[in-house]
Design a protein around this nucleic acid. Sequence first.
DNA 1: TTGATTACTGAATATTATTCTAATAAATGG
DNA 2: CCATTTATTAGAATAATATTCAGTAATCAA
Lengths: 149, 149
Amino acid sequence: MRDIKNKLISMFRNGYCTPQIARIAKKIKEPSTTIHYNIKKLEKEQVIKAYKAVFDYKKIDLGYCVYVLCQISPDEYADPERIAKDLVKHDNIESVDICTGDWELILKIRAKDQDEYYQFIKSVISRKGIIKIITVSSLKQLKTEFIPT
Amino acid sequence: MRDIKNKLISMFRNGYCTPQIARIAKKIKEPSTTIHYNIKKLEKEQVIKAYKAVFDYKKIDLGYCVYVLCQISPDEYADPERIAKDLVKHDNIESVDICTGDWELILKIRAKDQDEYYQFIKSVISRKGIIKIITVSSLKQLKTEFIPT
DNA sequence: TTGATTACTGAATATTATTCTAATAAATGG
DNA sequence: CCATTTATTAGAATAATATTCAGTAATCAA
């Protein structure tokens, strides 16, 4: 037991996957070299950003999921991206959007449980020019990343 | 030009990818058969739900992205999943969450532009026991599906 | 129409996944 | 604690798959 499982999970969260050319070729009845050519093109044009796995997050200790709606302080209005960019690098954050309306920032955050989430909020979301947050926590996820659960 | 591109995109949105066992094996310095064994185990236990691609959505006509916060009508409280389950099957919907608080339902929706989004809302979100919605539209996406953009 | 670029494809090769078998290691029940 | 079962690890052989290359066809722009 060398904990290969957790290494795999963290690798699959944002890469280490690849298209199944032969299977696609069979499915749409085209030569596999043609499929290969077209996929490489999409990759070169950066239409495809990554190949990754989607998990049953309850089973990998990321079952607690919340949406965080943020208002940022007026002195950050000129450049909301400064705050946002800093958030991007955290593994617990699934998505970061700069938005219109009452909330300038919407985050989707995953953690093991409420405790871990609370620790995360304290250390990451506080300070940083965020003046008000509303947490909407997910009771049940029926679809994530386009994958029904 | 047989429009292989769009077929690939729709296939990659929720599958037709696979792990790169050899590359992982090299990376973490374990035999590839061991990696294979561990991956198959994760798949069997349904820890991994799918292998898929993540796109630059602006480049595949899904650049318009909004979060829709919904209040459902009191007579649906007993079973909010009835509404939610119906939404899951639509391709424009990236995620569906049943939540606590003021909004019982949070959707993340992708469309080509505001027009296409409006058509979608009219045909799908209206009726169905949803009494109030707030649309928060994303001006800039810095991270999606754990992938920085 | 012509030349240039882009898209497609078969054949050959390189790489990778998978199966099978056996050996260890870990967990379990008395 | 030991015996027994079950889970995990790997090597060798094979099957399947991706990739390269070279040539052809289609598209496009002038």
